[in-house]
Amino acid sequence: MKIIALEEHFVPGRVSDAWTATAAQQDFTVSLNSNQYARQLEDLEDIRIQAMDDAGIDIQVLSLPSPGVQNFEPADAISVARDFNDILKGAIKNRPDRFDGFATLPAPDPAAAAKELQRAVHELGLKGALLNGRVRERNMDHRDFDPIYEAAEALAAPLYLHPQLPPAKVRDAYYTGIGDVADIMLSMGAIGWHYETGIQLLRMVLGGVFDRYPKLQVIVGHWGEVVLFYLDRIAQLNHAGLNLERPIIDYFKQNVYYTPSGIFSPQYLSRTIEIVSVDRMMFSQDWPYQSSIKNGARAFLEQAELSVADKEAIAHGNWDRLVSGIQRGPNDETLHLQKS
């Protein structure tokens, strides 16, 4: 069974240097990536391949993790994103049997981000893009980002929504006062990242992004970033006068795919299938932040109480089907985007 993992991260040295040289990027995530995980994130050979083999993963879809380029000034974001995408293309060319990739987009300049997504798909052969959440204080439903969503829909290219730190004021209000280490962990992988990303996805739904771009497809990790399991309560917002075109749950079933991000829980697997069906599930391990015991990723799928067809769908089939529809050459829609 071929296993393709979608939330697997790569940080070239030049990007790490750009992070540490930019005051706006000085946050816990930069320190984490530039110190504790630097070797694993930069490596594309022995360390990474051995870890993939140990976990039972055949292909990693590489991407730049948080903070990405979300908080750079626009000109710097464009430069770093293009540089990363070119490096990523080279990495895939060297090992097409083991790697694929999500582009990084200069979201601080949404028009440039739309053009970079086109370049990434048409010229570099990448499989969509990964976005590290909001851009400073602009949430992901902000109309400024419509050019990105328009381009992704026209290209039929998925967008992976990845966590980043909650805003500083939120961290101060909710994630401090417990202990030095606990405060940081609480604001990141323990829960803060996941509330942050879940709220961004929910805002995209409530803000009408999927009504404006009904064919747009996004992917989220960590079993739906909390909000998926709370849809019964979130459904109250169907009566909030938002004038959405569909019931809220329909957006989660028709515009979103879900991965485990290395949280290999049979209970979460079962609950996700119950809510959105196997057809909306894909796979990820969240390398290098989530390590796996020997053959752990493969064992999780192989031991799941699912049919062989369902296991294959999660392991690679749903991903293969989704990316087979990506528009690789200019058509009427993408030509419109190029001209605009």
Rank of each mutant, 00 (worst) to 15 (best):
G177D: 05
L64Q: 12
S63A: 15
R48T: 00
A182D: 15
Y195L: 05
L130K: 04
A81K: 01
E123N: 07
P106Y: 09
H142Q: 05
I59S: 02
A111G: 07
D146G: 04
V135R: 06
I178M: 11
I92S: 02
D100L: 09
A91L: 04
A182R: 09
I49W: 09
A77R: 09
K115A: 15
W193Y: 13
D58P: 01
R138C: 04
A173D: 08
D97W: 10
Y175S: 14
D76N: 12
P108W: 02
V80E: 07
F72H: 06
R98Y: 05
K127W: 06
D54K: 07
I178H: 11
I92D: 02
L126C: 05
L105P: 05
V181W: 15
Q118A: 04
E137S: 05
G177V: 10
F102M: 06
D100M: 15
A81V: 03
E123C: 15
S187V: 14
E153W: 14
A182K: 15
A154C: 15
R119D: 01
A120Y: 08
F84P: 03
A173F: 04
N132A: 00
P167G: 00
E116N: 05
V170Y: 05
Q60N: 07
R48F: 09
D83E: 14
G189L: 06
I148Q: 14
S63F: 07
R48Y: 01
V61C: 03
P106L: 09
R136D: 12
S79A: 15
A152T: 05
N139V: 03
N85G: 12
D144A: 07
P108G: 05
V121K: 08
A157G: 08
L130Y: 06
R134L: 00
I87N: 00
G56V: 01
I148P: 09
D53F: 01
D83N: 09
P167D: 03
F102S: 08
D180W: 13
A91T: 11
A113S: 06
F72R: 00
V61L: 03
I57S: 01
L62K: 10
N132E: 07
L105K: 09
R171F: 04
V69W: 09
D109K: 13
N139A: 08
A75W: 13
A75H: 14
G90A: 08
D183T: 03
W193Q: 06
P106Q: 15
K127P: 00
D58A: 06
V121C: 10
Y149D: 03
A55Q: 08
I92M: 12
A113R: 02
N139M: 00
L161W: 10
E150C: 04
Q50T: 02
L155N: 08
L165E: 15
S187C: 07
G192M: 04
L186R: 13
V69K: 11
H194D: 14
D86G: 03
H162R: 07
R143H: 03
R119K: 11
L117I: 04
K93H: 12
D83T: 14
H194I: 01
S79I: 11
A103H: 08
